[in-house]
Design a protein around this nucleic acid. Structure first.
Lengths: 209, 209
DNA sequence: CAGTTATTTCAGAAATGTCTGAAATACAAG
DNA sequence: CTTGTATTTCAGACATTTCTGAAATAACTG
């Protein structure tokens, strides 16, 4: 592997982390290389820099493509394929979130829903189904939320992230206002737990004020 | 494997998903079995029900323990170890989030910070470092947010999730109020992008109103 | 169409990960 | 200390995944 030390360290690390992220070493290395690169690279260049076989690079690029993490481009007067990494970090985050959900969550949700439709045949299965139902509800709440957040434009998403847990203050403020100003009663669409009613100010929610 | 069909389907699915989740088949199966079970199980029972070797179960339980997903308990007059799954779905979500972060994100963040400290030795490295900086900032924003959200009590977390992207309306409402009522000027702690100022009402942000 | 270059496919080699059975360890009870 | 039971360790068998080189395919060029 013939790379400037800084880039090499980055590439090697991504290769090693690859296995924890469900991609293999070469795929991780290719992505890191493209991400750090200051120009599009073709397969042959990647092969040389990483010191792996040409066919391995071909397969790796195809996998990155199914993850929608690389873009294929062409340079004038050159019929080789050139690749760039999806470069905007927020685009990467969104893509990773979508793809991981598709691969890691959706199949499970589908199986769970299926099992919840079945008629339990024993006490044991009744209990199991209850547990499955609790799990399903939680996953559904999370994925619905993730869906909605995915649709926010970048600025909004960043704004929310920066606010952090500060959002709960806003929620409290809103509930108080609704009461003080005699606003329209809340639609119980998001049925609040009793502890979140007007003046109940929870200890933890106000700890930073 | 001798299990009621519904439970068996659940267990088999978790086993298969295991590889995508960075755990192996047996570990996934053991967790699923414990999660669906209506009582604590000992290693021998798990062995029998899953039809895998006793030693495999021992290793699997140890791994689940390092993930903090199972609890060890003892029954009176029985010196065998009994296990239960972490059963509250929100506790599971929190634990998974923490553990995955520890394994999948923190090491990368540490390497990135390290590489950002280094003196770049070429134009190429200067560019690479800029890319690394962008990535680092994004990951840091995400993990800081995740940290804060982790500290919220369950009800608050659920409340937020149910609100979904509705939070942005609250943000807008707050900004408007600050102006209308002449409230104290915002601390620029979360420096908003210009587009989020008082009446700029972005098209996408108000699309549902 | 033949020649050239780029990419993909794929069988098997190499590497890695998982699982088992046997042996080792741990520990309570007699 | 010995016996009996529970659990862990670990070397090697087995299984899966990754990677390579060679061959096939594709696509352009004259």
């Amino acid at each position: 592997m013939e790379l400037p030390p800084l880039i090499q360290a980055f590439v090697l690390h991504f290769g090693e982390m690859g296995s924890r992220w469900g991609i293999n070493r070469t795929v991780g290395q290719i992505y890191a290389l493209l991400y750090a690169a200051d120009r599009p690279l073709n397969a042959e260049e990647i092969t040389q820099r990483l010191g792996v076989s040409r066919s391995n690079v071909s397969m790796g690029l195809r996998e990155l493509d199914t993850w929608r993490l690389v873009k294929l481009r062409h340079l004038p007067d050159d019929r080789r394929d050139y690749f760039t990494a999806l470069e905007d970090p927020w685009a990467i985050v969104r893509t990773l979130a979508e793809e991981r959900r598709k691969r890691e969550v959706d199949p499970t949700l589908s199986v769970l829903r299926d099992l919840l439709m079945q008629q339990p045949a024993s006490e044991e299965e009744i209990h199991a189904q209850e547990r499955l139902r609790a799990l399903t509800n939680t996953i559904e709440l999370l994925t619905t939320w993730a869906d909605e957040v995915q649709r926010l434009p970048d600025e909004r998403l960043i704004q929310l992230l920066k606010l952090g847990s500060g959002v709960v203050k806003l929620l409290d403020a809103k509930d108080r206002l609704t009461v003080v100003l005699g606003g329209k009663p809340r639609q119980p669409r998001t049925a609040l737990p009793r502890t979140a009613l007007p003046r109940a100010s929870l200890p933890h929610a106000t700890s930073k004020e």
